[in-house]
Simulated scan of single mutants.
Amino acid sequence: MFAFDFLNARHGDSFLVRWGPQAGRVMLVDGGPGQVYEESLRDRLAQLPPDSRGIPRIDVVCVSHVDDDHTAGLLKLLRQIQRARADQDSDPFAVQSIWFNSVDELVDHVEPGLSASTQEIVDRAGEESGAVKSSYNQGRAIRDAAAGLGLASNPSFDGPLIEGKQTTLHQLQVTVVAPDATAMEELRKHWREARELQDPTVISAAYSDDSIPNLSSIVLLLTHHGRTALLTGDARGDHILAGLRTTGLLDGAGPLHVDLLKLPHHGSIRNVKRDLFENIHADHYVISADGVKHHHPSEDTLRMLVESRDPGDKYTIHLTNKIGFAMSTLDDLHNNRKFEVSVRSPADSALVIRVGDEA
Rank of each mutant, 00 (worst) to 15 (best):
242 A>C: 02
121 I>H: 05
316 T>W: 00
18 R>N: 12
73 G>F: 01
298 S>L: 00
93 F>A: 07
208 S>H: 05
287 I>F: 07
111 E>I: 05
356 G>M: 10
220 L>E: 05
197 L>S: 09
244 L>Q: 04
78 L>C: 08
135 S>L: 10
71 T>C: 11
324 G>N: 10
108 D>S: 12
1 M>F: 01
207 Y>A: 03
77 L>R: 13
296 H>A: 08
325 F>I: 04
284 H>E: 14
271 N>S: 15
327 M>Y: 03
149 L>Q: 05
160 P>H: 07
162 I>R: 10
61 V>E: 02
308 S>T: 07
340 E>A: 14
36 V>W: 02
29 V>I: 14
120 E>F: 07
240 I>S: 07
185 E>K: 13
102 S>L: 11
345 S>E: 12
302 L>S: 09
299 E>M: 05
161 L>R: 02
24 G>T: 07
20 G>A: 03
80 Q>P: 01
157 F>L: 15
236 R>G: 08
311 P>G: 01
329 T>A: 13
234 D>I: 10
303 R>F: 06
242 A>L: 09
108 D>G: 07
23 A>N: 12
87 D>L: 15
346 P>M: 05
290 D>H: 04
128 E>L: 15
50 P>W: 09
94 A>H: 13
11 H>E: 11
244 L>A: 10
32 G>P: 07
291 G>C: 06
294 H>V: 00
181 A>M: 05
304 M>R: 13
197 L>A: 15
68 D>I: 10
98 I>S: 00
239 H>W: 02
75 L>R: 15
332 D>W: 02
7 L>E: 14
243 G>E: 01
200 P>I: 06
71 T>Q: 03
175 T>Q: 01
306 V>C: 07
270 R>Y: 06
242 A>K: 06
354 R>P: 01
268 S>I: 02
294 H>P: 00
6 F>I: 04
167 T>D: 11
357 D>S: 12
27 M>L: 14
195 R>Q: 15
30 D>L: 06
291 G>M: 04
1 M>Y: 03
142 I>S: 06
69 D>P: 00
254 G>F: 03
67 D>I: 04
79 R>T: 09
100 F>H: 10
23 A>Y: 04
280 I>M: 02
50 P>M: 06
337 R>C: 06
201 T>Q: 12
129 S>F: 08
86 A>W: 14
259 D>M: 03
14 S>I: 05
193 E>L: 12
189 K>C: 04
250 L>Q: 09
52 S>F: 09
84 A>N: 05
107 V>D: 11
248 G>A: 04
170 H>P: 00
5 D>R: 11
251 D>I: 01
14 S>F: 02
142 I>V: 12
119 Q>Y: 11
319 L>W: 00
116 A>V: 08
192 R>Y: 02
18 R>S: 13
274 R>E: 13
31 G>V: 01
123 D>E: 13
205 A>N: 12
200 P>T: 11
297 P>Y: 08
327 M>D: 10
328 S>W: 02
87 D>N: 15
58 I>N: 09
272 V>I: 13
352 V>N: 11
145 A>D: 14
182 T>M: 02
54 G>N: 09
157 F>Y: 10
328 S>L: 04
271 N>H: 05
87 D>H: 15
129 S>K: 09
304 M>Y: 13
88 Q>A: 14
268 S>V: 11
107 V>M: 07
179 P>E: 04
49 P>L: 10
78 L>V: 09
213 P>D: 06
274 R>W: 09
116 A>K: 12
201 T>K: 13
264 P>W: 02
